[in-house]
Every structure is written in C-alpha cells, then in structure tokens.
C-alpha cells in the first residue's frame, strides 16, 4: 500500500492504517484537507490525510518545515478547522460542534504543549497548572490542589510551585506546560515542536519525561518534530511532505516498519 492509496481512503476508511494493532483509536482522521488563501493564492496545507491515532501511542508527526505538521495538530486539537474531511475524537465527530462545544471538548479531552511554552506570565507554576482545572465543575478544590501538586511532582517541579515563569529555565517552563497538559487527564496530549526552543540536552530530557509518562500512565502523546533524534524516541510516526502522508511507521525491534511508504 502506498501513500496515495492511504490518502484516498482505500485502506483507511474504517480501520487503522499504519498502527494496525487491535487497540482503540483515540483520534480518527479521515480524508482531511486544509487549504488557505494567502494573497489570492490557494495553498494546500493538508491534502486528503487519513490515519488513526491509537490509545497510548507515542506518535511523532515528522516532516520538514511547511509540510503541514502544525496544521494537522491544530485541527486534531480543535483549534483550527478543516476545509474538508473529518476528525473524530473517541468516535465523536468534531465538525458540527459550536465554538463553545469545542472549547468544552478541549477543556476535558485535549492537553496542549507549545513550542514557546505559552505559560501565563502573571501566574506561578502551580497556578498555571491549576488554570485548566478551573473550568471543571466536577473537580472540587481539594482534588484540584492534589492534582496540581501531583503533576508538578511528576515533572519534578513541586519545589518550584510558587515560581513565576520568568523565574524558571526553558526546560522547567516546558515541564510546567507538560504538567498543565496532563492535569486534566486528557485523552490525548498534542505537543507542537516541544523541544524546538530548548537546547538538545534539555529537549531530550523533556522527551524522555513525556515518554515516561506515556509508558507509565498510558497517556496518548502526539508531537511534531523535524529532529531525527527526537523522532527516534517515538513508537509511531506519521511523515508528512507538502501536506501529504509519505510514510506511516511503527517501531519494530530493528528500526521502523512502514505500513505506507511512497
């Protein structure tokens, strides 16, 4: 099977394409296309993308700059909308949802880790981690407090809970962002180039932390990268080029096994 077949939906209309284990899909992407109009020109950022993301996977979206990685993550994260095609999270289509319904979905099911950390500078680490929980009426103050310190502890920053972002290093800020993404106990964590603003050593530590959380807590992670060393830490990969899937791979004992390869 090649990329064109996968993109046309032949192999992917109702089953996982690359990650064919009998595991439940968290996200199902079907024939996803995204086009922008830039200065009168139509630019295709994603072209007929189809694949599934399985629960508990540690999936890398790889590709050069401009290949559509961020656009794909943004649409899966419900902060951008597709031109055509569909995305389902836990089997629920997001296409017909109102902005408020999408906000509620993000608040409950999706954790974000940004390249530039995007912490609120006026809140300290604990308050930043607590922020997404304040929209959750099912979580009381005691549980909220427990969760905040639990996840700060997991990322190794319990001692720096009262520090504001400007008092933390880049790596520490990204750890706070990871705790903030995890605190809602999301179905999926989306990380757009999470190590791009970090030095190599710190970036690797952050990836290891994410990997450890993925393995111990079975949290599904999807992260974009164009760094081969970072890519090697993933157990699944989706390679994009010019908005199309060129490879869907799964980690094998001796390297990558590709279900789709152009």
């Amino acid at each position: 099977m090649n990329a064109e077949e996968a993109a046309s939906g032949g192999a992917a209309s109702n089953a996982p394409t690359a990650l064919g284990n009998p595991v439940k899909s968290v996200v199902s992407v079907q024939h996803l296309t995204k086009r922008y109009r830039i200065e009168g020109q139509i630019v295709t950022a994603l072209d007929d993308i189809t694949f599934n993301i399985e629960e508990g996977s540690f999936l890398a979206v790889a590709g050069p700059s401009g290949s559509g990685k961020s656009t794909l993550l943004n649409i899966i994260g419900c902060i951008d909308s597709p031109t055509s095609g569909s995305v389902a999270i836990d089997g629920d289509e997001i296409a017909q949802r109102t902005p408020d319904e999408l906000a509620d979905l993000r608040a409950r099911a999706i954790g974000f880790i940004f390249q530039t950390f995007n912490l609120f500078p006026v809140l300290n680490a604990a308050e930043n981690v607590e922020y997404p929980l304040l929209k959750r009426s099912d979580i009381g103050p005691a549980e909220r407090r427990d969760r905040v310190f639990h996840y700060l502890d997991i990322v190794g920053l319990a001692d720096l809970a009262r520090h504001r972002p400007n008092q933390l290093s880049g790596g520490q800020r990204q750890r706070v962002a990871i705790a903030r993404a995890l605190v809602i106990q999301p179905r999926i964590v989306l990380a757009d180039e999470p190590t791009a603003n970090l030095d190599h050593k710190t970036g690797k530590r952050i990836l290891r932390l994410m990997q450890r959380i993925n393995r111990t807590m079975r949290t599904t992670f999807v992260f974009s990268t164009h760094d081969q060393k970072v890519l090697d830490m993933a157990d699944r990969r989706v390679d994009l080029e010019d908005g199309e899937i060129v490879r869907l791979g799964v980690r094998a004992a001796d390297g990558w096994a590709y279900a789709v390869e152009r």
Binding site: P99, F112, F114, N118, F120, P132, K135
Partner: peptide, 10 residues
C-alpha cells in the same frame, strides 16, 4: 490564544 486552546470559552 492559549486561554482558548486550554478550553476557555469566548
């Protein structure tokens, strides 16, 4: 944008 991404309504 971060507020909206984290689930704040408009």
């Amino acid at each position: 944008g971060t507020m909206l991404a984290l689930g704040d309504r408009r």
